[in-house]
């Protein structure tokens, strides 16, 4: 018990407080000026916006993937199941350069998008693509166990009450998955907001346009602007804590129905 608390404090809690103390070392006005500068705001917008869109896309494909893995038998299922965890196992920098190469205008995928007038790398779309890669397993792996444990008798009950398959899925199955779905969404979103490695290679990193918030912290650090770096970090930490609270609240809410 004592060991746990000591290690936790030394590795996690005290270091985290350092960033808050550093940011608090400025006057509120200074803090506010950095936290809400045009460049910072653009960076938050990109980080939050791209993370949100990626989480939405992952919610759709994630639930389909979980459904296929739990409910269907198909060739290659074991392989697909293992692959879903690739983003957990693959170093983010590797994912970053691979995605950048694929989706660059002359890349394997990008060359087909260019004639359509779609630019999928070195802009916010590229950031979103990287965050889809990073976030997918969060959604799949949160929904999958809930789907596997779900009793099929409620679906039979709905059918015996005259509901067709689409009504059963829309009104019974999916609402029952909602808490797990929201949790997976929130986890993918939280991870996406802070993601760095897979994003910077495909982002383009243009200030005000394709510069994510974590990159802004690094840029401030490289200019030895430690207080400014800490300020942006505090804003991001606040968002992380909020997401943690939201996830806990979703789970507490879901337990009410069990």
């Amino acid at each position: 018990m004592g060991v746990t608390l000591t290690v936790l404090s030394l590795i996690v809690l005290i270091p985290l407080s350092a960033v808050v103390l550093k940011a608090a070392n400025q006057s509120p006005a200074e803090f506010w000026a950095v936290a809400t500068s045009q460049r910072s705001l653009a960076a938050y917008r990109l980080s939050f916006g791209a993370a949100f869109v990626a989480a939405v896309i992952n919610s759709i494909f994630g639930v389909l993937t979980a459904w296929a893995l739990v409910r269907y038998e198909f060739p290659g299922k074991t392989l697909i199941n293992a692959l879903v965890d690739l983003p957990f196992a693959l170093p983010t920098a590797v994912a970053g350069i691979a995605l950048a190469t694929l989706y660059a205008p002359n890349g394997w995928v990008g060359q087909f998008l260019t004639p359509l007038g779609i630019k999928a790398a070195y802009n916010p779309i590229g950031v979103t693509i990287a965050l889809i890669f990073i976030g997918l397993p969060f959604v799949v792996r949160t929904i999958e166990p809930v789907l596997r444990d779900a009793a099929e008798d409620v679906e039979e009950a709905a059918a015996s009450l005259g509901a067709n398959r689409i009504d059963t899925i829309l009104r019974i199955v999916l609402p029952a998955l909602a808490p797990a779905w929201l949790t997976g969404f929130a986890m993918a979103f939280a991870r996406g907001v802070g993601e760095y490695g897979s994003v910077i290679f495909i982002a383009g990193n243009m200030p005000y346009k394709s510069e994510i918030a974590p990159l802004l912290i690094i840029i401030q650090l490289e200019q030895f602007e430690y207080a400014r770096a800490a300020t942006i970090a505090v804003v991001m930490l606040a968002v992380s804590f909020t997401m943690l609270l939201v996830i806990n609240a979703i789970q507490a809410w879901a337990r009410r129905f069990d």
Partner: peptide, 17 residues
């Protein structure tokens, strides 16, 4: 908690200390 913190922030805290 470390899962919810951006890796960049994780690096930053040690630079600050």
């Amino acid at each position: 908690l470390p899962f919810s913190v951006s890796p960049v922030v994780a690096g930053l805290i040690y630079v600050l200390i």
